[in-house]
Design a protein around this nucleic acid. Structure first.
Lengths: 216, 216
DNA sequence: AAGAACCAGTAGACAGTGTCTACGTCCCCT
DNA sequence: AGGGGACGTAGACACTGTCTACTGGTTCTT
């Protein structure tokens, strides 16, 4: 047996059959959170294809059958890990958003944080946008990215009051995501000849929001 | 889904021995082509996650070790199948391109064909853009999509001679791809409220190419 | 023309996977 | 006390991808 952080889990009053009373996932000593954290560590260390159910259980120090109590299936566990990635991304965006700056600048910064995330946490990014995860409607993966989209929509509404902000934000969101994807799997070199997504991003921002206005 | 095992292949004999030592892929009788075709059928019928090496071999009517002679690893076989998807997509685009129409219209049509493909051949589309396939640089998956990009770049150069066509085409390509992705996994409903990618596409085209001009 | 070399496909083994089920083992509650 | 239920263990099962003999047919060499 292995116990990394033996935590005196006081009280387990959980009358409802839902399973875990810890509403937040990555919190404390509960196995559910430990599994998710082990998965996050694993995907960062070894990549997205290393996230086997048994390996995650191994890293969490439990037997291969244990995760089943908290995640009925492998995809559910992967979705929880990916969800952690989404909330983390949202936190980064929120942390780096200077609410006093001009909306145009805030959008550009949001986009840059997004691209930075895709570039630095490659495995997590790959996991977050795996088709089988998103498609299966598990968890609120799509809902988890909703606050991000709402933030973008609000900013777009300030920059382009003439157009439908939801439409413009959607198109810009898709553009941003596409740039991240192309960059992520190295197709950028073929397209633009360089590795830097910044020119593409600038072009996309100019296209959707209008050219950046010169500072007053 | 049903197996057609009535394949009259007795051993390895050519019907009349007219030199069918296929060195090319995609040929007719050779096992290599049969495997790829079986994979294409399978991904259309059952989805991308059903493409196990053994199941493809089963459908091709050979033992599970046979593919190894032609594809060293599973990913190589999957890449070949995905490559078939890319060439097929390119063929569709080329077939539906009215070379006499205005460039702006041809771009719009190209984009629509692309989106149609993503919508109709869902499994194949998912396979074509799997990160582990594209990332591993196997085959010329990225190179296979190069003609498509070149075609787009050429058209963009005609519509927007003022800007760097490679940059604009890259941004537009990324935008198109992002729209397809969002649509593909159903995030469009959350963003724009509808299922139709057409408004997003129109917005993207307007953004990158300028609003559609009324006939001069 | 006989033997060697070779190629394509077969069959079995192996480690690893996800899921299912039976079984302990605690702790809480009345 | 003792029952009940949540929690984790351990084994089985079917399946996967890869590796390694091994067989049969074809072709090249001498």
């Amino acid at each position: 047996m292995r116990e990394e952080t033996e935590e005196p889990r006081a009280g387990h009053s959980d009358p409802d059959g839902d399973g875990d009373d810890e509403g937040h996932d990555g919190g404390d000593g509960g196995l559910r959170g430990r599994l998710v954290r082990a998965g996050v560590d694993l995907v960062d260390a070894e990549g997205a294809q290393a996230l086997s159910l048994r390996e995650i259980a191994r890293r969490a120090g439990v037997s291969h059958g244990a995760p089943r109590r908290h995640f009925p299936t492998h995809l559910d566990l992967l979705s929880a890990i990916a969800g952690q990635g989404f909330t983390e991304l949202a936190a980064r965006v929120a942390a780096e958003d200077p609410e006093t700056a001009a909306p145009r600048e805030r959008i550009a910064l949001l986009a840059r944080v997004y691209l930075d995330y895709a570039g630095s946490r490659r495995g997590m990014y790959e996991l977050m946008f795996r088709h089988d995860l998103l498609e299966s409607g598990r968890l609120g993966l799509r809902e988890t990215s909703l606050p991000l989209f709402a933030r973008l929509t609000g900013l777009v509404a300030l920059v382009r009051p003439d157009a439908d902000p939801v439409l413009v934000a959607g198109a810009l969101w898709a553009n941003l995501h596409g740039i991240a994807q192309l960059w992520h799997w190295g197709s950028l070199r073929l397209a633009t000849g360089g590795d830097d997504p910044a020119p593409l991003l600038a072009a996309a921002l100019d296209a959707h929001l209008g050219p950046a206005e010169p500072a007053p």
